[in-house]
Amino acid sequence: MKPKSDMTDYLNDREVLNPAQPTCDKSNAYTLGPLQTGPYCCIPEPVIQVKDLSLFYGAKRALDKVTLAIYRGCITALIGPSGCGKTSFLSAINRLTDLIPDCRVEGAVQFEGNDIYDATCNVQQLRKQIGMVFQKPTPFPLSIQRNIALPLREHGITQRADIQVITEQVLRDVGLWDEVCDRLDAPALSLSGGQQQRLCIARALALDPQILLMDEPCSALDPIASSVVEDLINRLNGRYTIVIVTHNLAQARRIANYAAFFWVKERERIGHLVEFGHCRDIFETPTHPLTAAYVSGTRG
């Protein structure tokens, strides 16, 4: 990490990110307007430490020896071509890999200093702390209300009044409240794609996680819905630690503090981490020629 960041610099940048004056007004969020990079985080304090993480599907190695840190309160963008293991990397962080048959993980992932692959790790608690949003919106085929209530109940919040308060709060957080407050009993699948994705984000936020993993949250959405979600991510910045996979380099530049560039070798099809650092450095002064080629659009 270069010691470029200092407190005032950070605070100035945060000021710009204040929701009252959004960084990117919508007009240039989906046109090719001027790009900005997210600010440096002030105190790089790792909340997740990934060491030599390798991931296998059966005998096939999908990720090779990834080592990086996710910093508290920052947005980390994962970029790279399809198939380089970004989704696999995310699911190794909340142990969603447990659900994939024949999927095996080597190396260590530490969350707040505890190894999550240790036998003593409470996976349910881990996943409550580390929320996840998928590429395709995945609301349950329940009512809007119950989509949020079901996981809450599972985590011991059973009072109807509490659930109502949380539901309203998270729906307001994602800007969905005004759109759905009069039809909370309607099926979640009747919402539009962008609304469904925001509902999924709200559902994850309802559990009050520390970290939010987002796997290409905008890629299934149209540009306007996508900019709404992007604004939302900007508003979440600072309150949550966010790891976001995105194919939209402009978006990564706009919102991320840190960036990790993954690549997959043509022949072996093994994904690996090429470069990790401040977002601005990855985009403006990349050290690896592959990164330089990818961010300038000549490869990938």
Partner: peptide, 21 residues
Amino acid sequence: ESYRLSAAALGMSRTATLFHL
């Protein structure tokens, strides 16, 4: 499968996912 994955990602147990979803 996405229902199982998202339920698991929300920290729901297997049995709860099974019975409620």
